[in-house]
Design a protein around this nucleic acid. Structure first.
Lengths: 235, 235
DNA sequence: TCAAAACCTGACCGTATGGTCAAGAGGCAG
DNA sequence: CTGCCTCTTGACCATACGGTCAGGTTTTGA
């Protein structure tokens, strides 16, 4: 009972406090934007005196930069879901799941990220030009390979990625609008499941795959129904 | 030549000046956010002394409110494209075209709109709860009717709308990111055409329609191919 | 036990912001 | 021309902001 008794050494405390501040900052930046956020608001949200913030983060911009980089890491990590996949159905399906989960679990971070990019990426332009560009090219290559292998319809991989980003991120960035259109109530577990299913269904069909292959519990016996012939579209 | 000689009466001048200021304000709000925008910046952008802004718009918030409402009108008007259509192919296709055109022609307004919603719609919450809600319910009903008539796959109309909004708006809101991934250059006419085509193709296929029905010159004879089996892509 | 290091915070400062105002410039009707 | 109303603007004000700092408290290592 000596080791786990005091696991909170100096460095741990510092890391903990920083994380606490970062969480408060993320929320305030998301709700007010960089310009609208004030150190005082963040301090209040974190329950600390303003001067203490400046002890851990020299400037407002430093704090903001840390918040943005944090969410960028998470955002980028969602790619892992796509890597391990054999084909487009699992790969893109898993990626959609991962990104929808990010929108749900990190709505503030998502908004901060959106805001940052919308305002011209003043603090992460270099990341866009290096990490993100590499990442994007890698995924495009993978998708192109799937297309060449005849595993999916020949769509422009770049615009497919944009659509994936847009469709999933929308549930965070425009969450307020969605909530309003949902009768003022936040999406329930069921709603989120339906959202995921809709997005996956639309996109997977959009790239020429028949049905949301993955988990699809309470709906119909798998494989028993096809809805490919939507009444030959009438046209 | 007496009537059109001086069409600029007092009221016209006022309207003209207001429009000029609104345009400058839209850009500044889009680039800096509401909190980051300053009346001085807007004044400089408009080439006017700051005090003159306050003659036309009492407060920064008034100015902002006007900008937001303007873009909301445009945004809502894009619906007209969907109304006149007989079926989902033309209706949704035209809507995508219209919204992509908005993203292209009004990138600043789009960003202001996104920012407003992201921050909880402080100034247009009432619009969301009335106009937008009615609009949305109307379109959902139309889409549901199409589904019931067997004209498209049975998708959740609400999530389909979200995807339409997200996918098209993305090209404005995340335009900077797209530009960066495009080698730092803005999308060309050709790029925009490809974007439109991709979005339309993905979504129309996503709702069970075979091909971007409208203008689609070089691809395949319409109606001659079905690609339900995921293998035969490659065509 | 003790000195040094890390941490905390109330009070303070220079600046930039949204907004005001009073004094004019310009133009229109009579 | 003349009086009146719209428009324009430089100077100004109170406030709130990001950031600093000196002096205190707690923790750490020896």
């Amino acid at each position: 009972m000596t080791a786990p008794e005091r696991p909170l050494r100096r460095a741990d405390i510092r890391r903990e406090r920083e994380a606490h501040i970062l969480k408060a900052a993320e929320k305030v930046f998301a709700e007010a934007g960089f310009g609208g956020a004030t150190m005082q608001l963040i301090a209040d949200m974190a329950g600390l005196p303003k001067a203490n913030l400046h002890y851990y983060f020299a400037t407002k911009e430093d704090l903001y930069r840390r918040v943005v980089r944090n969410i960028f890491e998470i955002w980028l990590h969602a790619a892992d879901a796509m890597d391990a996949a054999a084909g487009p159905a699992e790969g893109i399906g898993a990626y959609i799941d991962a990104k929808m989960e990010i929108s749900r679990r990190h709505p503030f971070g998502s908004k901060v990220w959106a805001s940052e990019v919308m305002h011209g990426a003043p603090v992460i332009q270099d990341y866009l030009e290096t990490t993100l560009r590499d990442w994007t090219e890698g995924r495009c290559a993978v998708i192109q390979r799937w297309i060449d292998a005849g595993l999916m319809a020949p769509v422009d991989p770049r615009h497919l990625l944009y659509m994936l980003w847009a469709s999933t991120q929308h549930y965070a960035d425009f969450g307020h609008q969605i909530e309003t259109l949902n009768g003022g109530k936040p999406l329930s577990d069921r709603d989120w499941a339906a959202a995921k299913r809709s997005v996956k269904g639309l996109i997977l069909r959009g790239i020429g795959l028949p049905a949301p292959s993955g988990k699809q519990p309470p709906d119909a016996p798998p494989g028993s129904r096809r809805r490919d012939a939507p009444a030959p579209a009438r046209d």
